[in-house]
């Protein structure tokens, strides 16, 4: 059974197409990532799925309910964590959780148990009487996650849950998320980070309101056109300048202390080595490489622009 099923979903603001004819499906128990740069339309898409923004056209089924025809039924079944902190800063952690449990009419006993368990799991138990406004970014997001989970939703929508969160808290956060699919929770999350995307079972790459491709990280990388060459050089900027003149060049991007070069045609390694040597650029190695998710994204965006 599909937990989320999106068909031709669009939301326009004037002439801006924030979300433009988007379709994809998410299977039950999946962790599904929506990845794209700022302004790609991720937040609008998440809000459409949460039933708090009305689509211009198209529709979506979330947790078995229609977001257009019956958004209130969707709301009872989903947990939603917005990008902007949307809990009350002058309420304590405990008060915020209790308030949200009341909002969803969650059974008091069960909510109490869930609260105690999650407080222990997130390490927030000692801060239960601290006002939410005085929490760190990471603690705020953990509190948000607890509130989104208190009524045991079947679908969890997380809009950039780890943006602005320190690496340690981010690791904790993902540890909690990783356990949820086994409890029957489907997670749809958005992120601007490619490294985070690789933790998702499947992904949708999004740019300018459109979904460019859907698949697992490996599938998406495999779809990258051309051959990848990794150049290890102490002078990546010099190498980049030389390579820009290379015929058949699809993309060349710095990648850590190396350069990822994507070329159309065969013998990519030989051609890259030749042109770099010819121009006198020092490089220690040029070897065939696996395309990363970032390469896939750059490839797809490039194709989208030319199309």
């Amino acid at each position: 059974m599909q937990a989320v099923s999106v068909t031709g979903l669009s939301r326009h603001y004037g002439t801006t197409r924030a979300v433009d004819d988007v379709s994809f499906e998410v299977a039950s128990g999946e962790i599904f990532g929506i990845v794209g740069p700022d302004g790609a339309g991720k937040t609008t898409l998440m809000r459409l799925l949460a039933g708090i923004v009305t689509p211009t056209s198209g529709g979506a089924m979330v947790a078995g309910c229609d977001v257009v025809a019956d958004p209130e039924a969707v709301k009872q079944r989903i947990g939603y964590l917005s990008q902007v902190f949307s809990l009350y800063r002058d309420l304590t952690i405990g008060e915020n959780i209790d308030f949200v449990a009341d909002l969803y009419s969650e059974d008091l006993v069960r909510a109490g148990e869930a609260k105690a368990r999650m407080l222990a799991m997130t390490g927030l138990a000692p801060f239960v009487d601290r006002q939410a406004g005085r929490l760190s970014g990471g603690m705020k997001q953990k509190l948000g996650l607890m509130c989104a989970l208190i009524h045991r939703p079947t679908v969890l929508l997380l809009d950039e849950p780890t943006t602005g969160v320190d690496p340690l808290s981010r690791r904790d956060f993902w540890r909690i998320l990783a356990d949820l699919p086994s409890q029957g929770v489907t997670i749809v999350l958005s992120s601007p980070y490619m490294d985070e995307a690789s933790r998702c079972h499947r992904l949708a790459l999004m740019d300018h309101g459109r979904v460019l491709a859907v698949g697992s990280a490996a599938e998406l990388a495999a779809r990258v056109s051309g051959q990848m060459v990794e150049v290890v050089t102490p002078d990546p900027r010099g190498a980049l300048r030389v390579l820009e003149g290379l015929p058949g060049l699809l993309s060349a991007t710095p990648f850590g202390d190396a350069l990822h070069v994507r070329l159309d045609g065969d013998d990519a390694v030989a051609r890259v080595s030749a042109v770099l040597a010819g121009a006198g650029v020092v490089f220690s190695e040029a070897r065939p490489a696996e395309a990363s998710l970032e390469d896939a994204f750059i490839d797809l965006v490039g194709r989208g622009e030319t199309a």
């Binding site: 989903i78 949200v100 969803y104």
Partner: peptide, 13 residues
């Protein structure tokens, strides 16, 4: 204005 309306809007209230 404070962003908390998003929580209420996404809840079944």
């Amino acid at each position: 204005e404070s962003g908390t309306f998003e929580l209420l809007a996404a809840s079944p209230i």
